[in-house]
């Protein structure tokens, strides 16, 4: 407990609200993780509140979101404001990097937001779990196969607002994919055929760089599904390797 801290500094939230207040230590831990990222000092160099970032931010035109505000919160180390912005605002950013291209200080609000998103996941914020739930199909596909998008994800059911023409030629998806003249693309469940050996290498990257840990925090069920798939594919690969040994 910080003896000199006001109630607002100690906690975030409405003091009259029955909702539990947040301990300042947690706010500091979150901010310390943001600051500790190797990119932080490179992407935040100062801010005069000029607002040139927000002036051309696509998300700012549609959401209650301003890259200027995000940079100011970080620059002034406003822990409560940072935590508040991490609940919703950071997820509005469209990651176009127009802000970074235009900032006279060479700040990259878009990159800073990525650091904040990573930290939101690390701390298991419920808001991050909620906002990422509809993204789970992409995560499942990417982490288990090494492809982020596959032909069988693009269906009229999932993308009704894209209209009736997923393909303007009425034929089975499998046949249309076979008619693509790149042999690697004659696939349905991945965008291209990914070598089993390649997927296994990717699993090692996920494990050694903490990505699976992130996934476990954000969606335990998805984590279980993906690790099961990984185990199966590793067994398949080991079987193949053993068969190769037998041939030599």
């Amino acid at each position: 407990m910080h003896a000199t801290a006001s109630r607002k500094q100690q906690h975030i939230g409405d003091p009259l609200s029955p909702q539990p207040v947040l301990d300042r230590a947690r706010l500091e831990a979150i901010f310390n993780d943001i600051q500790a990222d190797a990119r932080y000092d490179h992407e935040l160099n100062g801010c005069l509140n000029c607002g040139i970032c927000t002036a051309t931010c696509p998300a700012a035109q549609y959401y209650d979101f301003s890259p200027r505000e995000i940079v100011q919160l970080l620059w002034t180390e406003n822990l409560e404001g940072i935590y508040d912005a991490m609940q919703e605002k950071i997820w509005a950013c469209a990651q176009c990097y127009t802000c970074a291209a235009r900032c006279p200080f060479r700040n990259s609000p878009g990159s800073l937001i990525m650091i904040m998103r990573e930290v939101a996941i690390k701390h298991g914020l419920q808001s991050a779990k909620d906002v990422l739930r509809p993204f789970s199909r992409v995560m499942l596909k990417l982490i288990s196969t090494g492809n982020q998008l596959s032909p069988d994800m693009i269906t009229a059911d999932h993308f009704a607002d894209w209209g009736p023409n997923i393909s303007k030629i009425d034929a089975p998806l499998k046949l249309l994919r076979q008619a693509i003249p790149m042999p690697t693309l004659n696939t349905m469940q991945t965008a291209w055929e990914v070598n089993l050996k390649t997927s296994i290498e990717l699993y090692t990257i996920w494990e050694m760089t903490g990505v699976l840990k992130q996934l476990e925090i954000i969606d335990e069920n998805l984590f279980d599904v993906i690790t099961d798939i990984m185990d199966e594919k590793r067994e398949d690969y080991e079987d193949w390797r053993e068969s190769q040994d037998g041939n030599e």
């Binding site: 990525m114 998103r117 990573e118 991050a128 995560m139 982490i143 760089t209 990505v211 992130q214």
Partner: peptide, 14 residues
């Protein structure tokens, strides 16, 4: 990187 920029799952190292 599509997944990373969309979700924050991933990191500089990965």
């Amino acid at each position: 990187a599509w997944n990373y920029h969309g979700s924050g799952i991933g990191n500089l190292e990965s």
